[in-house]
Simulated scan of single mutants.
Amino acid sequence: MFGMRRPLRRALSLGLPTAWGATAITYKMTCPLAQQDGLGARLVTSAVFFVVGTGLIQHVRQTLLRELKQARRVAGAAQSVLLRPLPPRVEGLSVAAAQLSADRGALVGGDLYEVIATEHGVRVVMGDVRGHGLPALGTVAALLGSFREAVHDEPDLDGVLRRLERALARHLRERHREEHPASGRPPDTPVAEEFVTVLLLEIDAEGGVRALNCGHPWPYLLRGTEVGPLARSEPLPPLGAFPLPTELPATHCGHLRRGESLVLYTDGAEDVRDARGRFFPLAETLTKAVHGHPVSPEQILRTVLRALLRHTAGRPTDDIALLVLRNQPPHRPAQGARGSDTCGHAARARPATTPGQPTTSPTSP
């Protein structure tokens, strides 16, 4: 039944304009009134052709709108598969993420994020691909696919980053061959104008945080009512702009203690401006969000998103992605409990889980 709808719809899309055109030609060729030169006859003829033209324009408009809606549904489904909803908990961390698009009708962007529990610790990626649309979505797919495999295979964070670099270069070479099939050979510098900012984090069982940063903004650390950058070291260049250096020592960023949060974001969250050209005060907004009381990741996201929409009058000029991680171990009954470690992770009394599998069902918060 569904297979018959598409040929029928295609036949209607071709048949209706043909019918309108045939009506206009028939009127002009056979109607005696159309052959007269009087003012009244000309008015009637003009009215007929006006109605026919209006019908054709309306039909074309409806067809284009239908195709645009279908393309947006396909793009939205593709992006929802790539940026799958994050579980509300990953090991001892509460997790929440959100996106804000610069175009209300746009469902395809270049932001990427993922949080995965592995035997090496909880590993996190936040990135921003240059550009928008389907090319950016293809780059997101290549990087997320590589990350989801590499985090389990690579014992060190630098190995994960090198896997991402190879995946990006391979994807851009393949895309160049598809876009320029007549060239017959891969480009000398396939990533000369393409780059991705990438932030990799690794949080171990004791809450120790290590990071590798390629051109991405450092996350904010929320410690009580204090808000500050997780690190202040100069990041590496964006991934793809230059080859990675031979040595890639991870930056040690201290510990994420119980009740503390990390807020990862793409640069649009701080670069977006209001009508008077003022940048959005993200750090100040986070300080107000945590002032005087502990908040959940979902509350932090809601506070920041509301402030962003007020700042931009509901029309942000850049895509924005936000990811909040909070060291918030689950509450467990005191009876029979074996305690918890210094980072607040549940002790070994909890049921074992497969590396990379969240401790709760993967539903969006």
Score class of each variant (00 low, 15 high):
V227G: 06
G109E: 03
E165T: 08
P235N: 07
Q62I: 05
V44W: 05
L107F: 15
Q36H: 12
D103F: 03
L323Q: 06
Q335I: 10
L248A: 11
A106Q: 14
H311P: 09
G105H: 10
G105F: 01
T312L: 02
H120C: 02
E193R: 12
T139G: 05
G133C: 01
L301N: 03
F49A: 08
T266E: 04
L230W: 03
L308E: 02
P186F: 07
L305V: 15
L222V: 11
L143W: 04
G138S: 06
S101G: 11
D158Q: 10
R10M: 10
G240F: 00
L308H: 03
R350Q: 10
T287G: 15
C214P: 07
G40M: 14
P87M: 01
P229R: 14
A11Y: 03
D158A: 13
S296I: 01
A141V: 05
V115D: 05
D341H: 10
Y220E: 06
R72G: 05
G76W: 00
P243T: 06
R162D: 05
L65P: 01
L262I: 08
L56E: 09
T26Q: 07
R10C: 08
A275W: 06
Q79R: 12
Q62A: 12
G314M: 00
T251Q: 11
V124K: 04
R338V: 06
P217R: 08
M1G: 15
P245C: 05
E91C: 05
Y113K: 05
A347T: 09
V122E: 01
F242D: 06
P219D: 01
R5G: 01
S296P: 00
R5S: 05
E67D: 13
E67R: 13
R185C: 05
A352E: 11
T354A: 11
T251A: 09
D341W: 02
A71P: 03
P187R: 07
A106P: 04
R42W: 03
S94P: 02
F147R: 04
P235C: 02
A24C: 06
E179L: 13
Q299A: 12
L262W: 11
A34P: 11
T359V: 13
R130P: 04
G3R: 14
L83E: 08
H132P: 00
I300P: 05
R173F: 01
G76D: 10
R123Q: 10
A71V: 11
S361A: 13
T317G: 15
L134Q: 08
R232I: 07
T363I: 12
G215A: 03
R258K: 13
R170Q: 12
R185T: 14
A205S: 13
S13H: 12
E194H: 13
L39F: 03
S364D: 10
V198W: 00
V81A: 12
V295F: 01
H311E: 08
E284K: 13
G314R: 04
E119L: 08
V81Q: 14
R173M: 06
G21I: 14
G356T: 08
E114L: 00
P245S: 03
A71T: 14
L12Q: 14
T118I: 00
G76A: 10
P294N: 11
H59L: 10
P85D: 04
H331Y: 03
L86A: 10
P329C: 09
R177C: 06
G105A: 12
L248V: 07
P217N: 11
E202V: 00
F49W: 14
G3L: 14
